[in-house]
Simulated assay, not measured.
Amino acid sequence: MAENKQTAEGKVSEVHKKIKAAFEAFDYESNNTVDVREISTIIYSLGCFPTQKNLHDFIAEVEEDHTGYIHLDRFLPAMTKVLLENKFPSIPEDLLLQAFEVLDKEKKGYLEPEELTKYMTQEGEPFTQEEMDEMLTALTDQEKNHIYYKDLISQLTIDPDM
């Protein structure tokens, strides 16, 4: 029994680390608060893909009295529950890998920031330049100026067996 409890605690601890890391990437003031408009990006970065209604309901649950800001103290427990209960199903790692491999036509194992920017601003629902700048800052290996998507995928997904 004690071993199962430890495993469950380890699982929660690991989930908390991922959530905090994703949240902190958008906490520009370093005050444990993010703009409500960043929440969908944070949730997607955790490998969750809620419907627009689910996203709206989640934001209503965690937003600070309609201020336009969300505090980590409210986001962390709510998002932990979402992840542990698999409320917003994630895209499987192998499917994400296939998508990146389609973009990586030369099979290099990475994308260059310019390549990713082109795909993300010209295809589908385009990202703004500000969104791209934020994403590239977080994802790009600064020494080599590459985005190693296999490392990225493991950061973006939660193991369903955890």
Rank of each mutant, 00 (worst) to 15 (best):
K20H: 08
A21T: 08
A22R: 09
A25W: 04
F26H: 14
F26P: 02
F26V: 01
N31G: 07
N31W: 03
N31P: 05
N32H: 09
T33N: 06
T33V: 11
R37H: 11
R37P: 00
E38W: 14
I39S: 03
I39G: 02
I43W: 04
I43M: 02
Y44F: 14
S45P: 04
F49C: 13
P50K: 09
P50A: 10
P50R: 10
T51W: 13
Q52S: 14
K53S: 13
N54G: 14
N54I: 02
H56L: 12
D57C: 08
D57N: 12
D57A: 10
D57T: 12
I59E: 01
E64M: 00
D65P: 00
I70G: 00
D73G: 00
R74G: 06
R74F: 03
L76E: 11
P77M: 06
A78N: 04
A78V: 03
M79D: 02
V82Y: 09
L84H: 07
E85A: 13
E85G: 08
N86T: 14
F88Y: 15
F88E: 10
P89S: 12
S90R: 06
S90Y: 03
I91A: 02
I91G: 01
D94S: 13
L96K: 09
L97Q: 12
L97H: 06
Q98D: 11
Q98P: 01
A99C: 08
F100V: 03
L103I: 08
L103Q: 02
K105R: 11
E106I: 03
E106H: 09
E106M: 07
E106S: 11
K107C: 11
K107P: 00
K108Y: 10
G109S: 09
Y110N: 01
Y110K: 02
L111A: 05
P113M: 03
P113W: 02
P113E: 07
E114W: 00
E114I: 04
T117A: 09
K118P: 00
K118G: 01
K118Q: 08
Y119K: 00
T121W: 01
T121F: 04
Q122N: 13
E123A: 11
E125L: 10
E125F: 09
P126A: 07
Q129D: 13
M132I: 15
M132Q: 02
D133K: 08
L136K: 05
A138W: 03
A138R: 12
T140D: 10
D141K: 12
E143H: 15
H146A: 10
I147H: 07
D151G: 13
L152G: 05
I153Y: 07
S154G: 05
